[in-house]
Each structure stands twice: as C-alpha cells, then as structure tokens.
Design a protein around this nucleic acid. Structure first.
Lengths: 147, 147
DNA sequence: TTGACATCGTTGCATATGCAACAAATACTG
DNA sequence: CAGTATTTGTTGCATATGCAACGATGTCAA
C-alpha cells in the first residue's frame, strides 16, 4: 500500500460490497434465464414487475426498479416482439404506455418464478436470522436516495 | 395482479433489492467521479484497488472486484493513458501485468478518497446500529458464490 | 382559448460491455 | 528435452447501455 494515501478500508466500503454481491447474485441468475429462456436481466425485471403489479406504465417501472426509461422501453419492446406482453396506450392519459402480460407471458413467468423462489429460499437458508436485519438495513439505505 | 401466478413477493426478493440499491449508490457516486474527474466506475474501482493493495495484477483485480478481465484491462489502459498508473510485466511470471499508481494517480486518489469516506460516513450514520448486522449478512451472501 | 411549460416514451448515436478467440508465457507429463 | 495443457491479458465484434433530443400529449395560467 502506498504510504501517501489516507486510511481507507476497501472491505467495508458499502458501495463496493453491495455492487459486487449484487453483481454475483444477478450474474448467477441471469445465466439461468438467458441460457434457458433467452431473457436478459432487464427483460426479466420488467416481466416480473408487470406480472406482479397492477397496470404499470413504463414510467412506473422506471421508478420502481430504478431502470433507465430507455432500458425499460427497449426491454418492453423485445418482450412484446417475443409475444410475452403487450404495450397499449392508456385511455386516460395518452402519454402513458401500459404493459400487460400475454398468456404466453404468464406461462413463462410460471416457469421462471419457481427458479427465483428456489434461489431466494437458498439465500434465506444461508442468512437464517440475519435475513430480517438485512432487509431493515436495505430499507434504510433505500430511503434517502430520492431526495 | 394476474390470478394465474404463484405467490411471490417482489419487495423482499434479494437479487432485486440488492441490485437496485447498489445501483442507486453507485450511480450517485459515479456522477461525482465522472463529472468532476472524468473517471468511470470501473476505472474508479481499479484505481482504488491498486492504491490499497500490494502489487496487483489484472487477474487479481478481476477476482477481488468481480470485474470482467476485459473490463479491468481496458480500465487499466485508460488509466495509464491518463497517466494515473503504469502497467508493467511481472519479472517472475511474464504473463502477469502488474499495476502501479503514478504520482498523479496517488494525487488523484487523495482527492477522491475523502469523497468516498464522506459517503461512507453518511451511510454509516443512516445505518447506525444496523451497519454491523448488514456487513455480517453481506459476508454470508458473498461466501457461497464461488463454489 | 391560447401559449408556455411539464411529462412520457422512443430513438439516434457515441460509448461501454460481454464473450470468444487469440498470442504469449508457464506448468505439467513422460 | 519435446509436446500438450493451462493461465494470463488483449482485442474484435456483436450487442447493450446512457444520454440527449425529439414528438406527442397533458397541465396550467392568463
């Protein structure tokens, strides 16, 4: 270590740690999805949100998942091309594009969800009693970033 | 929510939560670095690791930071082009490329570290007593992924 | 109503990324 | 020692990404 640098502990530096670990988890999963189903991470995230939330627009997803709107837009277009969801202009505000799963979309999600659940179960098993504090901490970290 | 889908709680799904939060934190920081100093996230990570670890090769960083080796290679090249570090072939194993900060690299890191420290301090303040359990949980999550 | 302003989604474009292929060096086997 | 396999870093290329610009719509005030 260079003597001219201030004290700094890389191993407890949160932006690093979180990025690395999130990257590992996502890479793990992404390989399952991409290889077996031809679904990219952004597509997977959009799919999941559309499946589990009422009547989402592109913008809603952007906010919920902190995914660039262009990323959401393109992911949605690809999913539509694959016949997994439909984009349709909202009747009340024609700027909004709402997303709805097709039957095939629902079907695919029904295959993917168990994989996600199994993964989550593994993590929870590993974490044990630490799961709850972890979520609490993540809640706190997620709070302040908007304002 | 579609009735044909199994129960699934998006809000406690860890791969999601971690990715979103890590992304928010990194985006926050990245803006500081990129705007003010022209440093990208990968460059920043490499810089930091070279500064705070002895005698790292590209491979070492790839492992430590779980950053693709091509990403490390290119980030290192850019940093070298900016005069912030030097790549040199290791004498004992000439496949290895070791990285060393230049004086300018050290100087820049001396400007950047306080920003990182302040950011970390903010997070720690927010977390309070939750910081320790968080790190413990992250340790656990980081463990099993290699094997 | 009109006109200035804000919001939403898409797209063009420069850049970043991931992956596979590759050359150079080393390790291993007999 | 020769010959094969493994490791390491770089690069080419197809694709993904971020950002700004844009068109379309909606909001608001006068």
């Amino acid at each position: 270590m260079s003597p001219k640098l201030p004290q700094f502990d890389l191993d407890t530096y949160l932006p690093f740690r979180l990025t690395v670990i999130a990257g590992q988890l996502s890479a793990d999963l992404s390989k399952h999805y991409k290889t077996k189903f031809g679904i990219s991470m952004p597509e997977w995230r959009v799919l999941l949100n559309v499946g589990y939330c009422e009547d989402l627009s592109v913008r809603d997803i952007e906010k919920r998942v902190s995914l660039e709107k262009s990323k959401v837009s393109r992911a949605a277009s690809k999913l539509q091309a694959k016949g997994l969801l439909i984009k349709h202009v909202d009747a009340h505000d024609r700027r909004l594009v709402k997303l709805t799963l097709t039957r095939d979309g629902v079907r695919l999600l029904n295959e993917l969800i168990p994989i996600a659940q199994a993964f989550q179960a593994d993590l929870d098993a590993k974490l044990g009693a630490m799961a709850a504090p972890l979520h609490t901490a993540l809640d706190v970290l997620g709070e302040g970033d908007d304002g």
